[in-house]
Amino acid sequence: MEINFLALLVAALSTLLVGFVWYHPKVFGAIWMKEAGLTEESMKGSNMVAIFGFAVFYAFLIAIILQFLTIHQWGAFSMVGGDATKALPSYAAFMSDYGTAFRTFKHGAFHGFLSGLFLALPIIGTNALFEKRSFKYTLISGGFWIVCFTIMGGIICAWI
């Protein structure tokens, strides 16, 4: 199996699109800023190129791991040590029969959703507890990542 870096990049970039909507002042932006203790004034002077650049980089790292969580065939590939040329004939037969099974946007979105719910939300929630952030903050930030993981998982599973 090969990694489709374009699909991973598109999945990573999708987080920016979700963020532009999610954190718009008329959606959750104003509430999030209040709960995060930020003001428009405090945001001025930020290096937005660096912020968005690193945001895409981090989302790309998330996309890399999401491909292994959303595409079941990676499990079979890892079982042969990552080298299909050294695999037993049963691997080729398996991939011939099931190589494209469950490779839809819907299936990837399902696994992306579960990953967001059971990975991203607990991480955000734990950080919020120690940072003494509100439950609203946890729901807004965690909800954002659940939506992002869902869309990213769908893109990755359908495209790769």
Score class of each variant (00 low, 15 high):
V56C: 05
V56T: 07
V56D: 08
Y58V: 13
Y58L: 12
Y58D: 03
A59N: 12
F60L: 13
F60W: 06
L61S: 11
I62M: 12
A63D: 11
I64Y: 13
I64C: 08
I64A: 01
I65R: 12
I65C: 08
I65E: 14
L66N: 03
Q67H: 00
Q67L: 08
F68S: 06
T70Q: 00
T70P: 00
I71N: 07
I71Q: 07
H72M: 07
W74F: 14
A76K: 03
F77C: 04
M79L: 11
V80R: 11
V80K: 04
G82W: 09
G82T: 09
G82Q: 07
G82H: 06
D83K: 13
D83A: 14
A84S: 14
A84D: 07
A84K: 10
T85A: 15
T85V: 10
A87D: 07
A87E: 02
L88R: 12
L88V: 11
P89T: 04
P89L: 02
P89W: 08
S90D: 13
S90N: 07
Y91H: 09
Y91G: 08
Y91F: 15
A92R: 09
A92G: 11
A93V: 14
F94W: 15
M95L: 13
M95A: 14
S96Q: 15
D97H: 15
D97I: 14
D97L: 15
G99M: 10
G99H: 14
T100F: 13
A101W: 10
R103T: 06
R103Q: 14
T104R: 07
T104E: 11
K106W: 13
G108V: 05
H111A: 03
G112W: 04
G112M: 05
F118D: 00
A120H: 00
A120D: 00
L121I: 07
L121P: 02
P122N: 04
P122Q: 04
I123D: 00
I123E: 06
I123G: 02
I124E: 03
G125C: 07
G125D: 00
N127A: 05
N127G: 10
N127H: 07
A128I: 03
L129A: 05
L129C: 03
F130E: 02
F130M: 00
E131G: 08
E131D: 13
K132R: 12
K132M: 11
R133Q: 02
S134N: 06
S134R: 03
F135M: 06
F135D: 08
T138H: 05
T138F: 03
T138W: 00
L139R: 01
L139G: 07
L139T: 09
I140V: 08
S141M: 09
G142P: 00
F144A: 04
F144I: 05
W145E: 11
W145H: 15
I146N: 02
V147L: 13
V147P: 02
V147C: 03
C148W: 05
T150N: 01
I151H: 01
I151T: 04
G153I: 01
